[in-house]
Write a protein that binds this DNA or RNA. Structure first.
Length: 877
DNA sequence: GCAGTCACGC
DNA sequence: GACGTACGTGACTGCA
């Protein structure tokens, strides 16, 4: 027989810990979940590590217990349970029900007493018991069979006490814990103890006299007049305190130990509970669920085909091109799946790439295909020199447009949201990290077939929804043509001058070494400057600089804090420079060098087209949308970005103030429209209006302020955000915003109507009907509501600007084709497009780009594009 | 492997 | 009046 292992959990104590350790999370239904979440993570950890045979969770019952008869102020200082926690306590019981874990509360007794009683029974029976709590009082229950595990920091960071560990930590036997409490008291339970005696003194007294009784027997031997007096005067109180701290080990617990037997809850019930609570991240940890999952999936009719046949390639065939690598520029295809009205098939990659039939079908624009993630398919096949064309539907893009806020747009998630089919999550099939691997063929065929079949099934469903939202054109005329264009840009890549990167890197490394020496000597010691923790200790403890801001883990050492400390110590400016140079070296020099593709010697970023909430693109591996420009030091990195061939130049075209122009147009603000029509400098104009002076009298400081205000309008920052960026108070920032809105009543009205639209419809839209859903706009939580309101004001502006530049890229791609020019689009950086072109054609291309971008859409203000070119990206300024 | 902190762009 | 406050990506530390 295996040995019995009992786990007892102090429910209220753990719930409190979890509640205060975690931010106030709530799920999509607006219900607070942080305590339940924390409790659940602890529970899962306990199940995984302790593997109990018996379990029970004890809760406190009601407000008063028998201890109040002894001492009416017991727990008198305890604050009322916060309502955000109180509402979670019943949910905790639902959780335990889902796991089939018994729980109990007994009128007049505390959870401690239930635990004390059961652990005594278990210990008598020779069972091994572990008690989980955040309350040190329970240490009195430790014995040779019983371990008490205390939460230390957070919720899953714990420390286990057996008799030895307890002795090592406190020098006490378990039964002396109550004597300690008797002497030192416990402020959280409002147990008084003896005044003037804290943990240290209590431990010293107990080391000498063993118990409270012992202390009073030897009261005459105690040195220290004041302490002796305190002890004598509070003898009664000490005895009472000791009694209060004593856990009652014969509480009327009805449950027999045997009834606490536990194997595992029903995985499906637990899964349903997790899904209801929004605990997506915990789904993978449900005991017993993993083995069941594959059985749920009935096999679908997929055939492994050795070669391609015409019946597989009809109109509207769903195509899946599978590879494991997230970065498809390094992808190795592991399979191709096709699904249409004739069936579903999976083929080896070579059966496709080496087949003329496949190539003709894939490259023929007239032969329509449906895919999941068009750009991935285009680029993956592109690396095999297959030029995929004729994609008319992208399931992933459709999902993104319908539901940009969804936490994931992988095919498993989309399928479970919108169809009855089931597709496994890639991570479950392939594993992740080091354990990632191709599964046995049968499993792979099923998975890929299922993906293709799902894409085929989802297409009409998503298409119908897009039509209802009037978003179909956004998909078919904008995003999908753009996918192909972006795919070409990515596959083409950007040439870099590696020698130049190395040169800059060497100089940076040298300067970093010097800075390091300077910093060590100014600090008087060597330490890791890159560690905010160590740096904080040096600045704020060793050098005694004033602490202006703290983070949740310690001192803040961010640039804005350090800038304020600059006059205090000369080490600060060195640290700021060190950080700056370090960033350039590690992210931009070393990072970019690592990204040079071994096959092409170029850099191939990936633009994520289905990610941001506003409709902007993002760029990864490497991110080419945040190459330094502001400080000259960093800007030099751009010297390493060069055209493919000699005789070519880099050409950059950027929209000037596109967001503010969009704002002027959308808000129909006469003053702003006029300013743009007259070609005024918009920050000067804003400064003149906000400060009430004429444009000629605007000084640089006023313009700087106005620029920050405009920045705030464009990015939807709060008065707090504005105050931070200008280094002024929140009140002053709020006053600027108010003056701004008074001067531009059109903007004021627009902001109000945008919020009203969001409240009424639950979403906001851009010019091209991109949506962003804002359920929090009606939240009772001030923060959430304010955030949603700022988003409602800002997203239509930023999103419309994103729409416009995307449209410009589509237009530009066509214009390039039609012009006969040989320039190529390389990158997009939110409001600018980067090209490479033969120098001979640079002037022509400049005019074409400016014209095309400026007339992409027609607003009530002109769109202005600045174009420049040079031998490197740096010189295109 | 993960969270936290910091820094770069728009 | 408090709440914690534009969106992205990536490097690094320090903990599990």
């Amino acid at each position: 027989m295996t040995k019995n292992k009992l786990v007892l959990i102090d429910g209220n104590s753990i719930a409190y810990r979890a509640f205060f350790a975690l931010p106030l999370l709530n799920n999509d239904k607006g219900v607070y979940t942080n305590a339940v979440y924390g409790f659940t993570t602890m529970l899962l950890k306990v199940l995984e590590e302790e593997k109990p045979t018996h379990m029970m969770v004890a809760f406190d019952a009601g407000k008063t217990t028998f201890r109040h008869d002894t001492y009416s102020s017991y727990k008198g200082t305890r604050e009322k349970t916060p309502p955000e926690l109180a509402e979670q306590l019943p949910v905790m019981r639902e959780l335990l029900d889902a796991f089939s874990i018994p729980y109990e509360e007994i009128e007049n007794y505390e959870a401690d007493d239930i635990i004390g009683t059961l652990s005594r029974h278990a210990s008598d029976a020779g069972w091994e018991t572990t008690i989980f709590t955040g309350d040190k009082d329970l240490l009195q229950l430790v014995d040779k069979h019983t371990t008490v595990t205390l939460t230390k920091k957070g919720i899953t960071n714990v420390e286990a006490y057996d008799p030895d560990a307890l002795h090592e930590r406190y020098g006490l036997r378990p039964d002396q814990i109550v004597d300690m409490k008797g002497l030192m008291g416990d402020s959280s339970d409002n147990i008084p103890g003896v005044p003037g005696i804290g943990e240290k003194t209590a431990l010293k007294l107990l080391a000498a006299y063993d118990t409270v009784e012992g202390v009073y027997e030897h009261i005459d031997e105690i040195s220290g007049k004041k302490m002796k007096q305190n002890l004598s005067e509070n003898e009664e109180q000490a005895r009472m305190s000791r009694k209060l701290a004593e856990i009652y080990r014969t509480a009327p617990v009805q449950t027999e130990l045997a009834a606490l037997a536990w194997e595992q809850g029903d995985p499906k019930t637990i899964k349903a509970f997790f899904e209801e609570m929004g605990f997506q991240s915990l789904l993978g940890r449900i005991p017993g669920l993993e083995e069941e999952k594959p059985e749920e999936l009935a096999d679908i009719d997929v055939k492994k085909a050795e070669e391609l046949r015409p019946e597989m390639l009809t109109e509207g065939t769903a195509l899946v091109v599978e590879s494991l690598e997230e970065n498809y520029h390094h992808a190795v295809m592991i399979g191709v799946a096709l699904a249409n009205e004739n069936g579903t098939w999976v083929l080896d990659p070579s059966a496709c790439t080496e087949s003329d039939l496949f190539r003709e079908w894939a490259e023929n624009e007239e032969r329509t295909k449906w895919v999941f993630d068009a750009k991935r398919a285009v680029v993956t096949l592109g690396w095999e020199d297959v030029f995929l064309s004729g994609i008319t539907f992208d399931v992933q893009m459709a999902s993104y447009l319908l539901d940009p806020g969804a936490s994931s747009h992988d095919i498993a998630a989309i399928t479970s949201r919108r169809s009855g089919m089931q597709v496994q999550v890639d991570e479950q099939v392939y594993g992740k990290g080091k354990k990632q691997a191709v599964p046995p063929e049968e499993e792979l065929v099923q998975h890929l077939g299922r993906k293709a079949a799902a894409a085929r099934e989802l297409k009409p469903i998503l298409e119908k929804e897009l039509k209802q939202n009037e978003q179909l054109a956004l998909l078919t005329d904008l995003e999908m043509p753009l996918s192909v264009i972006l795919g070409r840009m990515e596959r083409h890549g950007v040439a870099v001058d590696e020698k130049e990167l190395h040169r800059i890197g060497e100089s940076l490394t040298e300067r970093l070494a010097e800075m390091e020496k300077t910093i060590y000597s100014l600090a008087g010691t060597e330490f890791n400057i890159n560690s905010p923790k160590q740096l904080g200790e040096i600045l704020f403890e060793k050098l005694g600089l004033p602490v202006l801001k703290k983070t949740k883990t310690g001192y803040s050492t961010s640039a804005d804090v350090l800038e304020k400390l600059e006059p205090e110590h000369e080490i600060i400016s060195s640290i700021l420079t060190y950080r700056q140079l370090g960033k350039l070296n590690s992210t931009y020099i070393e990072g970019l060098l690592k990204s040079v593709h071994s096959k092409t010697g170029r850099i191939h970023t990936r633009f994520n087209q289905a990610l941001t909430q506003t409709g902007r693109l993002s760029s990864t591996d490497p991110n080419l949308q945040n190459i330094p420009i502001r400080l000259e030091e960093g800007r030099k990195i751009r010297k390493a970005f060069i055209p493919t061939s000699s005789g070519e130049v880099i050409l950059a075209a950027d929209y000037s103030q596109i967001e503010l122009r969009v704002l002027a147009h959308m808000a129909q603000d006469t003053s702003l429209i006029e300013a743009f029509n007259q070609g005024m400098d918009i920050h000067t104009k804003t400064a003149a209006d906000v400060f009430g002076v004429s444009p000629e009298d605007v000084d640089s400081n006023m313009r700087r302020t106005a620029k920050a205000v405009n920045f705030g309008i464009v990015y939807g920052i709060s008065d707090y955000g504005l105050s931070q960026s200008l280094g002024i108070t929140r009140k002053e920032a709020a006053a600027f915003i108010e003056t701004y809105l008074k001067n531009y009543p059109g903007v004021q009205d627009y902001m109000e109507s945008s919020k009203a639209f969001a409240r009424e419809n639950g979403y906001v839209t851009t010019m091209m009907n991109r949506r962003r859903y804002l359920p929090e706009i009606t939240s009772k939580n001030f923060n959430q509501r304010s955030f949603a309101e700022r988003t409602a004001m800002n997203t239509p502006i930023q999103g419309t600007a994103a729409d416009i530049i995307k449209q410009a890229m589509v237009d530009m791609s066509r214009a390039l084709d039609e012009s006969g020019l040989s320039g190529t689009m390389l990158l997009q950086v939110h409001d600018e497009l980067i090209f490479e072109t033969p120098e001979k054609e640079a002037e022509k291309l400049s005019r074409l780009v400016a014209e095309t971008m400026e007339k992409t859409v027609s607003l009530d203000v002109p769109l202005k594009v600045d174009v420049s070119y040079g031998s490197t990206w740096y010189d295109a300024k």
